[in-house]
């Protein structure tokens, strides 16, 4: 479970004081609000990439552990962005190998490649294994991006407008497929979106605009 406690986003002229948040396993929280209000900033703070133009205070508790001050590489947080950013120098299989966690069962290159292939077979994308990202369609890239993020066995998944670059048809299919995958793996997820059509009915919603206020010193 992901918990966010006493979170406050503060810029020079405005401030957002969030209520405490809990996202249980398999649940999805969608953060909404107008452009520039700090949706992606909040997501990046959860990731551990602290923004420079605003200050964020609060605590992030993941599966009972306080990860607020941990560096990104120790958080076990998955990330999927609008631009999937598959590594262009690696083919699909190696992109997934790159994300697999280090363990005794996955210590050799052969074992890692086999594990990556298994993941691709599970979603019927084995035929893409040796292709490079430049040769994939938008939908294929998104699918591979999600599988790569899941390959790392994250404890929470962060999605930053992940389907915004796709055409409406692919977008709908990809959305349904992605949320199904996340629910199946019991991963709590936080998604930033400003498109209502992307939000599944079962998701919790947090509209940042509801908690936004202009700082007093600015009013004077």
């Amino acid at each position: 479970m992901l918990e966010v406690i006493d979170c406050q986003i503060e810029a020079k002229t405005w401030c957002i004081t969030l209520p405490d948040i809990q996202v249980h396993k398999g649940e999805l929280l969608v953060v909404t609000g107008p452009s520039g209000i700090g949706k992606s900033t909040l997501l990046h703070w959860l990731l551990g990439n602290n923004p420079q133009h605003v200050s964020i205070k609060g605590q992030i508790i993941l599966s009972g552990a306080n990860i607020t001050d941990l560096p990104i590489e120790q958080r076990q947080v998955g990330l999927l962005m609008q631009d999937v950013l598959l590594f262009p120098h690696l083919d699909v299989q190696d992109n997934i190998c790159f994300a697999l966690p280090k363990s005794q069962q996955l210590s050799s290159k052969k074992q890692r490649r086999a594990a990556a292939m298994d993941l691709l077979e599970q979603i019927n994308l084995a035929h893409l294994a040796v292709r490079y990202p430049q040769n994939l369609s938008g939908g294929e890239r998104s699918r591979v991006g999600l599988i790569r993020a899941l390959a790392n066995q994250p404890q929470v998944m962060l999605l930053d407008e992940p389907f915004a670059a796709l055409d409406p048809n692919t977008r709908q299919q990809m959305g349904a497929w992605a949320f199904q995958q996340l629910a199946q793996q019991d991963i709590p997820s936080v998604m930033v979106s400003h498109d209502v059509e992307d939000i599944p009915v079962s998701a919790q919603q947090l509209c940042l605009a509801d908690y936004y206020h202009v700082l007093e010193s600015n009013n004077q």
Binding site: L47, N49, E73, Q76, V77, L79, L85, F98, A149
Partner: peptide, 16 residues
């Protein structure tokens, strides 16, 4: 080089 590539690598547990 897009800085976000390294951000992603860090999210997979790789050090700086």
């Amino acid at each position: 080089v897009d800085e976000r590539y390294e951000l992603l690598a860090a999210s997979f547990g790789y050090s700086l």
